[in-house]
Design a protein around this nucleic acid. Sequence first.
DNA 1: ACAGTATTTGCACCGAGTGCATTTTTAAAG
DNA 2: CTTTAAAAATGCACTCGGTGCAAATACTGT
Lengths: 196, 196
Amino acid sequence: MPRAGRRNITSAAELEETAFELFDEHGFEHTTIADITAAAGIARRTFFHYFPSKNDIPWGDFDAGLERMRAEFRALPRDLPLLDAVRHCVVEFNRVPDEQLAGHRRRMRLILGVPALQAHSTLRFQSWREVVAEFVADRLNVPQDSLTPQTIAHATLGVAVAAYHQWLARPELELSQLLDTAMRELAAHASPPNGQ
Amino acid sequence: MPRAGRRNITSAAELEETAFELFDEHGFEHTTIADITAAAGIARRTFFHYFPSKNDIPWGDFDAGLERMRAEFRALPRDLPLLDAVRHCVVEFNRVPDEQLAGHRRRMRLILGVPALQAHSTLRFQSWREVVAEFVADRLNVPQDSLTPQTIAHATLGVAVAAYHQWLARPELELSQLLDTAMRELAAHASPPNGQ
DNA sequence: ACAGTATTTGCACCGAGTGCATTTTTAAAG
DNA sequence: CTTTAAAAATGCACTCGGTGCAAATACTGT
């Protein structure tokens, strides 16, 4: 279904790949947008038609993932305990087919490893938190911006990020496993004063 | 105790105040460093002797606070359950004398409300998380970079940030109260499958 | 007056990002 | 085939944050 008008000369995915190669070679900070566009054969100005900022390069189609997670939440039985539901969806959201694992790791190593991207991630993760808060608010029948949903959303993101860091540091461990363990970790230390 | 050499013409605190007034009037994004330095009567270049970046203006002496929190952790009885200890220190770290409340709110409204600052906060909060992780690691006798301390640190920060957002939105509520409640929130939903 | 020191400043730069007007490519209508 | 209108690509000038470096300035103590 071809629309009128000039066709795209490249794509976000293609630009991302070009950029990643340069990042691997020179590092994120030492790669300028001019470098990327030169390598991709487009004008510097054009870059900003594909990405709102340099920081957004590694995010792929994050929004599609969010929609998936929303669906996942909706599909869950209403009687599944709240945090079990959240844990399940976090794990599922981050499930990645084996053949995409390397790419996913490369993405996340950038996002969570480069300071500028780490900072920027907070802004992108906001919509992720909203998905969680939305679900919790609905389950508890409270406003989405009230304390409990927001707290659980923030904490859950924190847990997930911690698990990811662990995954990046220990490639031999499984991401899903780490996320699941991390999510249970809090509960384990929460109620009984057992300190271990 | 006067040292040799030229004396400082201003101070970070004074610059911060000047900057805050401009932020209040025009917003953070629409205030340039040139605006600030002009208002403060110093050269643009000099600004960067006082702050590493525009984003660091609202942070005051955050590091001193971290040291206080470390001390707080050390002073705690070893048999206080882990998460109780963490909760206590989070609340204490964020205890602010009444006469500084307004200033603290102004600070935090910026840090957590302006996107650029929200992003940057992730980098500043890293050292905060490290203080928590350090304590947890010590208590559990595991490496600081292992999953449990990192997870608890990340989650705790998330909870605290959620409480702060709530505080900013509802000035009538007490910060300490909100932090305490938020910290207990997770545990409440964690173990028993009661969904409410 | 002089030496040493720390701060301030000026200047020239770089890189990200934006606004706006213009050019280029393309599909489809006349 | 020509014209039209859409959409993308581009060029250019500009703003702003931030840095490196060298020179100027203000201060203390000899």
